[in-house]
Write a protein that binds this DNA or RNA. Sequence first.
DNA 1: AATCCACAGGAAGTCTCGGTTA
DNA 2: TAACCGAGACTTCCTGTGGATT
Length: 410
Amino acid sequence: MSDETQSSLDSIWQSEDQIFANKELLDIEHIPDEERIIGRDDEISNVANSIHPAIQGGKPRNTLIYGKTGTGKSLVAKHVTQSAERFAQKEGTHLNRAYIDCTQTTTETQVVIKLARSFNDPKKTDISVPLSGLSTNAYYDRLWRILDELHDVVIIILDEIDKLQENNVLMQLSRAGEAGKLESCKVGIVAISNKITFKDSLDERVLSSLQEREFIFPPYDANQLREIMRHREDAFQEDVLSNEVIPLAAAFAAQEHGDARKALDILRNAGELAKDDGSDQVLEEHVRDAREQADIDRFSKLLQDQPTQSKAAVYALSSLADGLKEEEFSTREIYEQYEQLTKTLDIDALSQRRMADRLNEQVFLDILGITDRVGRGRGKGMTNFYYLLEDPEVVQSAIKSDQRFSDVKI
DNA sequence: AATCCACAGGAAGTCTCGGTTA
DNA sequence: TAACCGAGACTTCCTGTGGATT
């Protein structure tokens, strides 16, 4: 490397970030100190009360928490259990907790493996928990042994529980004591869901044992969102935020069901746009752009992370809809286009059955929309009709960033 | 009113992969 | 080592649906 490049790089390394001081504070995962959890005082004490028996080694009440995304459900659950763990330690109770994100861990076996590994201490128990290879029952067996051996009480947080594919694991966990699987250890479950409808899919017995306590977290209002952002203002350098930035971001987020995550995303994106502009302040226009940009970015990113076959299916739909955005097409129409596409791409075509599943996955991810079960045309019963949720151009350019699609012209 | 159409989506089975265990 | 395990991606087969057709 020549001296000149070195010195020009030096100036980049040296330059201080004009906008951000501590960007991590804008991360939704970041758990703030207690005084920074805004507007959730009642919720915190409710949850604390319901798991309170655990402190003395009793059985914590199972708790169900509902609320839309970004209403502080996970935050409160994590915070309260963490605090309980600390206090119990002083009381001499072996209380432990585990957090499971059910969007990542979707099957029964995986949940059991994760729990067993997180509660285990191989040095003390001499039990190993391999990542795979055992039967589900063998994993349960080890989990029960670990719990009895090491812990008085455990609290299990199951976040986004509606994403769990099977609920046998809930049955097992909530009834472990009665079923004689556990001798001394008590198990409490804190289940978190953003859909109330998820109850419909549950077994009566599980539901009743899970529903000992049930709380609904309301959305944040604009005032609370403002306060939340003010408490994280340290993320920025001093005097970088102009006055209207936070109220505006709060107003935007409040419009979309009071989502704190959204508010922080907008704020961070606005900061990044300001930085790209070379501006030394974050201005109102940055916030407005950030909101628009955030939606498209999220969408494109989501799409780019999809497997090739799914992209092909979505692309087929987008080429049908070219110029006619939001027009709906039936599975069969999309499949015909998809078959063409796979030929030009020289990839194997999936069966129609499978491609329809892929399309439904995209609907689940909010990449596509669906009008289902509307009978139309001649001789048709139920038919699914799919449509794009963004402009065809946006969709196609996102997919074409994948090399395999770059030459496609249909 | 009876029948037909054409699709949705469940069930069951196959294959492959990465892993453990005795 | 052979036997086994679960997950995931697929396929094929099948049943149910409800407006259109006759």
